[in-house]
Design a protein around this nucleic acid. Sequence first.
DNA 1: TAAATATATTGGACAGTGTTCAATTTTGTC
DNA 2: GACAAAATTGAACACTGTCCAATATATTTA
Lengths: 195, 195
Amino acid sequence: MGRRSDHSRAELEELILAAGEAHLAEAGFAAFSAREVAKRVGYSIGTIYNLFGSHDRLVLAINARTLRAWAAFLEARLGSGHEDRIATLIHGYFDFAAENRNRWMALYDHRMADKMPLPDDFTAAFGALVALLQEQVAAARGKGSDAETLALTGSLVAIAHGHCMFELNGTYEMFGDWRPRDAALARIREALVSA
Amino acid sequence: MGRRSDHSRAELEELILAAGEAHLAEAGFAAFSAREVAKRVGYSIGTIYNLFGSHDRLVLAINARTLRAWAAFLEARLGSGHEDRIATLIHGYFDFAAENRNRWMALYDHRMADKMPLPDDFTAAFGALVALLQEQVAAARGKGSDAETLALTGSLVAIAHGHCMFELNGTYEMFGDWRPRDAALARIREALVSA
DNA sequence: TAAATATATTGGACAGTGTTCAATTTTGTC
DNA sequence: GACAAAATTGAACACTGTCCAATATATTTA
């Protein structure tokens, strides 16, 4: 029924993303449905496709939000003034993932079709998160070029990711009473010492 | 229709799993379809449901095969006689994942509904893979209880997993010219030294 | 052997999905 | 008010997982 000035374009986008985020958090990636999001905001499925183009891009837009929320979460933790900033980051990493299970999982559940380039806001959100982490890694090791620090950051994030994933998907049960979170911190400390 | 003695129950299962594996390898987890598997083996969709019960359990059965293939792949590499067995394992880990992208990804794409226990053959296949790895970790460190070795194995696998995932899903591009495979090996060496 | 029972197999039906797009309704402009 | 532009709709399409009454084949019994 034509342009509804109930909401501006930007407001409508925000509305859809907020509803989509809630739906994703409740249902998980596999059960996420664009039609359900449309139902929640009271617009038709067509409108969602006009604004976001595809299921994929809607998920990516929500994922970009998740990345921004994650970065904000970590910054808040860092701001709380604990002096062991690496431990603060690792616990923040795991806590965010655990408290936002489905949203965090969706970050990795979603595979982009072939080599379609990622939307800019997604890449930007990821870049901001990486920059935040890199800064702390740089401070923790003191020495080394930016390129080396960036590469080391990649490795430390990969460590955290692997351990966090195993904690959330139950794989950890295969390894006795192994505690992924503590192990991640230990491995990252070892890597920083060796660097 | 009716019972076709063309294939015994076991033969039919094998037929379906082989076709399903091929389809999964070609299409990837997101596009995997039980109907397509039925089409490939020339049976109806109902037959697949009679044998496997659900889409989920069909995927799990294929995933169990992938785990067994992965373990066999690693054993073959270890048998080739290179003396640096840790490096052999890491390269085997990454090579298998790269050569069987979609099948390897499906291992992690698939999330079981809630706390439904995994089928026995899946758990067994996973256990065998872990045992294989644990044996090499035990040899590499020489000392320590079985429980400690198992926990360390979990941590090393998590490191490999995180790095391998970042290599396959393109995340590595965010970290300059970082090479996940080499980094994984370096981190694992550090962890073994520190252990 | 023929009849009765047990077991496989089928494929239509259902509710849901992502995606497209002609038709419709609203808004902005002259 | 008339016209053009833009936004919104929802039916249509091809697909999915899942269920299950009907059917076809095997096996067992008489």
